[in-house]
Write a protein that binds this DNA or RNA. Structure first.
Length: 561
RNA sequence: AGCCUGGUGGUGUAAUGGUAGCACAGAGGUUUUUGGUACCUUUAGUUGGGGUUCGAAUCCCUACCGGGCUGCCA
């Protein structure tokens, strides 16, 4: 009921168009989109925007969305990538049902259409080399010149194309070109290559083909065959639209509408496969799923939730102008979701020993800790408390500044869910480094309140020394130190802007015992510290390794900058 | 240089001839057993110049600025 109402406001330009097409009865009111990645790498946040757009539009308008692997070039494509793509789309929360297709499913039809074009005098086999073709193409301001092979008789074209198909020519020696207009201001229309010779096996079709269709000859026709109504792609394909239209028209087939939108950019990171590949190859990151990478696999390992990414994609909007989104928006979406769903636990990154002198030596008790204040149904859990504890080193200052609420000598603070304590003595080593805090507790304050209603300004987290689990914690910061990694001094490239401190490893953190029960990759909050999840890394060694997904917002730290 | 395309607060995105709105970020505050969350308040914008109109972010002209295009990649 309320759904159409919500859609009424703020439709982006693509949805506005889809809506009007549907209203006017175009395509019999059908809406059918597709997400068509090339299986030559891993999906990243930019793809997520496209996935959310295509699947989202289909859902909102009662239509369908296909998953299509655009596998027209066997040189770079691998089954490994195709599988990762499917896993990532599913993880993001979308379902293509039985509609997964491959451009290679259409190779026979595409070939037949190429023959049809030749027979109609609209395509020809060209013997120009790569270099010669470049020279004939002309420039941005000058028209090109016709290939000397352009007027080859139809019969000869048919014969040569057949020999190309049979593998009788070497790679690059011949191409099949559409016969359009060498003087067109749009370079894509200057007799584009539609089939090239590639003697390489294809992951799907094996050694059946020695010739493969180009993107331009495959994409629109694949859309057409699948009955796509709106073919949504990024801005760089704008100049290809006339070609897309030309093939549909000249082949006399169903003609989907191509619509272009601006791709997503995020500051402090890179969003191109090419650059990510370099980071992986040069060992700047540990792999495609490094938690610092903007790949879906990296974000997943880092602890991002699918919902937060979908929410982000919705919030960035869809338009045609170039954009750079601030990471703060992504982090906002992340924290917003995590705050609602992540269970709370206690942990200290930089442990400082605390001994409560007036607490019975051998006593151990269980205090109740709230699992999630945002979700009463999450209940509570028992956490053990005893004479020997650890707190975080940055929660104590011997000589605190004015608005510091945490521990300092003589100031009473609350150990969350446990007792009020007051530091009475600071113990240091020979170098003057604080090694231990001697404190006194108020037995009346169990649970965190006192009968006299006395208030404390500071509440800090802690762990019980005997039961806490040691773990390794990986803290991540932005991958690049510059908002725009591509903006470099002369002679450098984007790798010069890498942030040397993007990964900080803490070897000796302590977390409450129940953290061990969290499954790998499941987000939880270490109260006052941030959101974390268990990394697959410590699995085999039996060690506990945590990734910090994102820190808590910290207005105290910000105020002290 | 030619063609295509786009310019709305710091960032992103609405308003399609009729009150420039929303979100993030920033600032201030209230609540709080997370310096979290939630809530409240607040700063800040139509690239410049002409024109049409009672009225222009919106239509026209012009200047300026950004992006894209010379793969047998997608």
């Amino acid at each position: 009921m309320s759904e159409p109402e919500q859609q009424e406001q703020h439709l982006d330009f693509i949805r506005t168009r889809v809506k009007s097409d549907q209203a006017s009865g175009k395509n019999d009111g059908r809406v059918h989109t597709r997400f068509p990645p090339e299986p030559n790498g891993y999906l990243h946040l930019g793809h997520a925007k496209s996935i959310c757009l295509n699947f989202g539009i289909a859902r909102e308008f009662g239509g369908l969305c296909n998953l299509r692997l655009d596998d027209t070039n066997p040189v770079a494509e691998k089954t490994e990538y195709a599988e990762a793509i499917q896993s990532d789309v599913r993880w993001l929360g979308f379902d293509w049902e039985e509609r997964i297709f491959h451009a290679s499913d259409y190779f026979d039809q595409l070939h037949a259409w190429a023959v049809q074009l030749i027979e109609g005098g609209k395509a020809f086999v060209c013997d120009l080399t790569f270099e010669e073709m470049r020279q004939h193409r002309g420039t941005l301001i000058e028209p090109g010149t016709n290939s000397p092979y352009r007027d080859r008789p139809i019969e000869e074209n048919l014969e040569l194309f057949e020999k190309m198909r049979l593998g009788e020519f070497s790679d690059g020696s011949k191409t099949l070109r559409a016969k359009i207009d060498m003087a067109s201001p749009n370079l894509n229309m200057r007799d584009p290559v539609i089939y090239r010779i590639i003697h390489q096996d294809h992951p799907k079709t094996g050694d059946k083909w020695k010739i493969y269709p180009s993107y331009d000859f495959a994409h629109g026709q694949s859309d057409s065959l699948e009955g796509i109504t709106h073919s949504i792609c990024t801005l760089e394909f704008e100049h290809h639209r006339p070609l897309y239209d030309w093939f549909c028209q000249n082949l006399g087939i169903h003609h989907p509408q191509q619509i272009e939108f601006a791709r997503l950019n995020l500051n402090y990171t890179v969003m191109s496969k090419r650059k990510m590949l370099r980071l992986v190859q040069e060992g700047q990151v540990k792999g495609w799923d490094d938690p610092r990478m903007p790949t879906l696999q990296g974000m997943r390992r880092r602890g991002y939730t699918p919902k937060s990414i979908r929410d982000f994609c919705e919030k960035v909007g869809v338009a045609k102008r170039d954009n750079v989104i601030e990471v703060e928006l992504l982090e906002h979406c992340l924290r917003h979701d995590l705050n609602l769903c992540a269970p709370r636990r206690l942990g200290v990154l930089d442990p400082l020993k605390v001994t409560i002198i007036n607490y019975p030596d051998e006593q151990v008790e269980q205090v109740d800790a709230v699992n999630n204040p945002e979700d009463p149904d999450a209940g509570t859990r028992p956490v053990s408390f005893s004479k020997h504890l650890y707190v975080d080193r940055n929660d104590f200052m011997e000589d605190p500044p004015k608005k510091y609420f945490r521990m300092s000598p003589g100031r009473e603070v609350r150990l969350k869910y446990a007792y009020y304590i007051t530091c009475s003595e600071v113990i240091k080593d020979a170098e003057g480094k604080i090694t231990e805090l001697i404190c006194e507790y108020d037995p009346e304050s169990r649970g965190g309140d006192t009968p006299d209603g006395r208030k404390v300004k500071g509440t800090i987290q802690w762990v019980d020394a005997s039961s806490a689990k040691p773990c390794e914690v990986r803290l991540y910061d932005r991958l690049f130190k510059a908002p725009d990694p591509d903006k470099v001094e002369d002679g450098g490239d984007f790798t010069g802007n890498l942030n040397p401190d993007s990964l900080q490893t803490i070897g000796s953190a302590l977390v409450e015992k129940s953290v061990t029960d969290m499954g790998t990759g499941k987000p939880f909050q270490l109260e006052r510290v941030g959101y974390f999840c268990i990394d697959p890394d410590g699995q085999e060694s039996g060690n506990l390794v945590l990734n910090r997904t994102v820190a808590m917002r910290d207005s105290w730290a910000k105020a002290n900058k």
